[in-house]
Simulated scan of single mutants.
Amino acid sequence: MKAVLFDFDGTLADTLPLSFSAFKAVFKQHDHREVTNDELISMFGPTEEGIIEENFTAQASVLQAIEDYYALYEKGHYTNFPNEKELVDLLRHLKEQGVKIGVITGKSRRAFVISSEALQLQRFFDVAITGDDVGKPKPDPEGIHKALQLLGIDHSNAIFVGDSNADILAGKAAGLRTYGVRWLSTYQSSEYDRIPDGVFNRVAEFYKLLDANR
């Protein structure tokens, strides 16, 4: 194993509740409607800008809603945000073992920078492919292929880890061993259209996989 590629929201960072909260606020304020978590998850795929642009009926409010979303999202990182020490330790362990770490996320570059800098995770990543960097978001494997190309690593020497059905589909489509995770407070999917190579409910369980591939 030369590289581990991760999804971000719900996989490396417990940012989904914060994202849900910010989206609900701007939908209520600018589009005058209530949306549920499940409705928001069904909108996921595009970047934050894309989600608002494609789902707002009040198109005149889109630009202001996007700016308000980012303001709320950024502020939330500095008010009682959970510190996921286990995941920081995992990333540090991978780096110490010489394993390359990549992120493939549907988040915009702007949102990813907000989170990765606020949570001090950016130092661990060798490559990060965001929703702004691909023409086709997950479940298309474009982002995974791009990350592996930049790292110079064959798909047979990498694994992909994510919390959503789209993650599992993307990893499988890219030909990687692909694992689902449910180790944070909020994750996107409990069922998958394709069977992952494993599912981890705790970060500690992931170390067994690493030991087996050392």
Rank of each mutant, 00 (worst) to 15 (best):
L12N: 08
A212V: 00
I41K: 15
S189D: 04
A13T: 06
F56L: 04
A13G: 14
D132Y: 05
V127W: 12
Y179A: 09
N157F: 12
A58G: 11
L87D: 05
T47D: 04
N83W: 14
L210Q: 12
P17S: 11
Y69M: 08
I144M: 03
G50D: 08
I101L: 03
D167G: 11
E48K: 01
K107T: 09
F23C: 03
A147S: 05
H155Y: 09
A71S: 11
S185E: 07
K85S: 07
R214S: 11
K136C: 05
G152M: 05
A174W: 04
T79A: 13
I114A: 09
D68Q: 12
D167Q: 13
E54W: 11
R182S: 10
K107G: 06
V181T: 01
T57H: 14
T15Q: 02
L150S: 09
D197V: 00
N165D: 15
F6V: 01
A158W: 06
Y179I: 05
D9N: 14
R33D: 07
G171E: 02
V62P: 00
R92K: 13
E74P: 10
S61Y: 05
R109K: 14
Y192C: 00
F23N: 07
Q29I: 07
Y69H: 08
A71G: 04
I144C: 04
A173H: 04
K28D: 07
L169N: 14
G76P: 11
V26C: 09
G135M: 07
F44I: 03
I101H: 02
A25R: 07
I41V: 08
T36V: 01
E84S: 15
E48M: 00
I41R: 14
A158M: 06
L209K: 04
R177W: 06
A212R: 15
S61I: 14
F27T: 08
R177C: 05
L87R: 15
I66T: 06
L72V: 01
L210K: 10
K85V: 02
R109N: 06
A58N: 15
S19H: 15
R194Q: 11
V35I: 12
I144W: 11
A174F: 09
M1N: 08
F23S: 03
G45A: 08
E39S: 10
K138A: 01
T57C: 10
G198V: 08
V88N: 10
F200I: 00
F206G: 07
T15M: 02
T186F: 05
K85Q: 11
E74L: 11
V62A: 03
